[in-house]
Amino acid sequence: MEHALAALCGVFFTVSIYMLLSRSLIRMLLGITILGNGVNLMIFTVGRLTREVPPIVPDGLVQPATDIANPLPQALILTAIVIGFALFSFLLVLTYRAYEELDADNTDTMRLAEPENPPSPPLSY
C-alpha cells in the first residue's frame, strides 16, 4: 500500500510541477493546490499506514482498548490543509484582482514591477 501511495505522491508532484511551469496564473494556482495535496498525502504516507481504528478513547475508559492509528500525521495534515486553503484563497483573490487591474493572466505580460526593457544603468560617475 505504501508503494502505491508513494507512486501517487510522485504523480501529484509531477502534475503540479508541470502546471507550475505554465505561464498562466490560473494553471499555476491549480499546480499549487495539487502540490499542497501531494505533500499532505506524503505526510499521511510517511506517518505509517495501518488498518486501525481512529484514535478515540471510548467512553468510560482512560486509554484506548485496541491499537489505534497514529493521530499526529492527521493533525499535521489538518493544520496544513487549513493553512493551505487560506493561502490558496488569498492567491485566488489576488490573481482575480491582478486579472481585473492588470488585464493579464500571463506572467510574461505582468511587467509593472520589473519593466521589460529596463533602462541601462546610469553611465555617469
Binding site: 496564473l25 484582482r97 505582468m110 511587467r111 509593472l112 514591477a113
Partner: peptide, 11 residues
Amino acid sequence: RIQLDGAVKYG
C-alpha cells in the same frame, strides 16, 4: 497596480 504585480510573484 504595481503592488498587485509584486504580490503575485511574492505570494
